[in-house]
Design a protein around this nucleic acid. Structure first.
Lengths: 248, 248
DNA sequence: CGCGATTTTGATCAATGTCAAAGGTGGTGG
DNA sequence: CCACCACCTTTGACATTGATCAAAATCGCG
């Protein structure tokens, strides 16, 4: 009903078997407490690519754990430009903010088909009070988000176009590999169009295309059809002056 | 001793009388609990302008509540450029991150003389466990920080030089006025050099100078010696396409 | 096969950076 | 009280990056 679309069906899933229960807010719970979470959650939901979980300025009655897929968190300003703030991957907790009943300042758009686990929003503060470790866990996750946005901001503010793209792709590459642990595929799936990359990095999609060609012509990488091949990791890290420090 | 300087002396202050005890993490405590905070804190400290609370890559044994003054949070990348992530004002809680024992990824430099309330770092997680509302409060504050960085990122990524500066100054103006409640002074103190502004907005200080002149010549504002006069609030909000939405 | 969305390419232009030098400003010590 | 120094700001000429516009090529999909 939200956004004028029919909502996809809700599919129940056991929290105990949830593939991301150690990565998201649920890490705050012991194995034996999962049934409380199970009772609290509304269910699971699948959204097609292009659908919005919520839009900037909306109020929302839910909170989301990303189970699968890629989500873009973004803001839009009056001049029409869009800034992508972060790409949310499985394990991200979406929609949390200081005042849960206030309008959301950012939006969340599904880049791929996405499945989420849905929490009800208004009872959430009480749920946190009943589960003290949850507050702690939320703080840690929010602090982690802050660090990621810091790095993103530094990328946008301090680097050239080539460096911005190199850095972004390397970072995403690391995140994807960390999730899909232990397989050294030559190709990494990064399902972004050049337009998403442009909106994330504060540039235009045609300049992204131009810059990607430069990187390709220097045999640093290949990026086509949402698949990234890093041909020269060291060269690319050098271009992107990627510090290898970040473990985020 | 840190940074090779002598540390300024520590001055004890009553938490109950603390001017910012309702704004920072301490908001989690009841009036009657303040003595626990008082026992936990190390003391207060005054640092001169230019001094660093901590630098990127350092480990740190403390956490800080800003009592007075302006602090720049920043990152530096290999090419030597610096990105200012946020300006911390009284009430900010500095140094918190997901893994407290890890090296800090950003630095904190005093823009003005600054006074802080100092917490010990390693006992902090236990302190949070003993005071469940503190975890909650930390989460809220971290979420608030995330929103502020989101806005900052959008500013840097989406706006022109004029708009970036207009937006930043308006935002800071609001924050300052909110702190020093209820006096409609014609001048607002924003103790930043053009270089700080440049590093915050991903531009050079000479272009900041140039752009400030444009704004001044259009009778939008005056900014000299760290004092801002907004001559044309509506015009400035228009240039900075400032949405008035944000209540952060 | 055909359509919409995405990517590519090239030409041109505007915004911002770079460099260099001159002016201001405030603080410190004599 | 003055002189000096460090730092900040201003200015102008020029270089460069990245945006804009427009059109063609490609891709994915029904």
């Amino acid at each position: 009903m939200r956004n004028g679309f029919d909502e996809p069906p809700i599919v129940p899933l056991s929290c105990r078997l949830c593939p991301i229960n150690r990565k998201t807010v649920c890490q705050a719970f012991e194995e034996t407490e999962f049934e409380a979470v199970q009772r609290f959650k509304i269910g699971d939901r699948v959204l097609p690519a292009g659908r919005h979980l919520y839009r900037p300025g909306e109020t929302c009655s839910e909170l989301y754990n990303v189970l699968d897929g890629w989500v873009a968190l973004y803001q839009i300003i009056r001049n029409g430009r869009r800034q992508i703030l972060d790409f949310a991957l499985p394990g991200s907790f979406l929609g949390y903010q200081p005042d849960l009943s206030a309008a959301l300042l950012h939006g969340a758009e599904c880049i791929t088909d996405v499945s989420v686990c849905v929490f009800p929003r208004s009872p959430f503060p009480d749920f946190v009070k009943e589960n003290p470790r949850l507050g702690d866990r939320l703080a840690v996750m929010a602090a982690r988000d802050t660090i990621m946005v810091h790095d993103h901001l530094t990328n946008v503010g301090c680097r050239s176009a080539q460096a911005r793209i190199a850095y972004l792709l390397l970072t995403l590459c690391m995140r994807v590999k960390r999730n899909a642990k232990a397989h050294a595929a030559p190709e990494v799936v990064i399902p972004l169009t050049q337009n998403y990359i442009a909106d994330a990095l504060g540039m235009t999609s045609v300049y992204v295309s131009h810059t990607l060609r430069q990187l390709r012509e220097n045999n640093l990488l290949t990026f086509k059809g949402g698949k990234l091949q890093v041909l020269d990791p060291d060269g690319l890290a050098d271009i992107g002056d990627f510090d290898h420090l970040l473990l985020v």
